[in-house]
Amino acid sequence: PDDEWKERLREAEEKNNWKLFEELARKAGVSEEKIEEWKRRWS
């Protein structure tokens, strides 16, 4: 299951679909801290 969400995150990233990325990350149990960090790195 871990690989599956990583794959989906990669797809979201490729499409630059931040909303989807964020949603998937939350569902995968990624901390808000980590998500914010990704946001900063991404923008």
Rank of each mutant, 00 (worst) to 15 (best):
P1H: 12
P1N: 11
P1R: 11
P1S: 12
D2Y: 13
D2N: 11
D2H: 09
D2L: 11
D2K: 10
D2I: 11
D3E: 12
D3G: 09
D3F: 12
D3N: 11
D3Q: 11
E4A: 11
E4Y: 15
E4V: 11
E4K: 11
E4Q: 12
E4N: 11
E7M: 06
E7Q: 12
R8F: 09
R8G: 07
R8H: 08
L9W: 13
L9R: 06
L9D: 04
R10S: 07
R10M: 11
R10G: 05
R10N: 06
R10E: 06
E11D: 12
E11L: 10
E11P: 04
A12V: 07
A12K: 05
A12M: 11
A12H: 07
E13M: 15
E13F: 15
E13I: 15
E13L: 15
E14K: 13
K15L: 10
K15H: 11
N16W: 10
N16E: 07
N16L: 09
N16G: 14
N16H: 14
N17W: 14
N17A: 07
N17R: 07
W18G: 01
W18Q: 01
W18C: 09
W18T: 02
K19Q: 12
K19G: 09
K19V: 13
K19D: 13
L20T: 08
L20S: 07
L20A: 11
F21Y: 03
F21R: 00
F21S: 00
F21H: 01
E22R: 01
E22A: 06
E22F: 10
E23H: 04
E23L: 05
E23W: 13
E23F: 07
E23K: 05
L24A: 08
L24E: 07
L24V: 08
A25E: 00
R26Q: 03
R26T: 02
K27H: 07
K27L: 13
A28E: 04
A28H: 07
A28G: 05
A28N: 06
G29E: 01
G29L: 01
G29W: 00
V30K: 01
V30G: 00
V30P: 00
S31R: 03
E32F: 03
E32Q: 07
E32N: 06
E33M: 04
E33V: 08
E33P: 03
E33G: 05
E33H: 06
E33D: 10
E33F: 03
K34P: 00
K34W: 14
K34H: 06
I35A: 00
I35R: 00
I35D: 00
E36F: 05
E36I: 04
E36R: 08
E37K: 02
E37G: 01
E37V: 02
E37Y: 04
W38Y: 10
K39S: 02
R41N: 14
R41A: 13
W42P: 01
W42H: 05
W42A: 03
S43D: 13
S43N: 12
S43R: 13
S43L: 15
S43E: 13
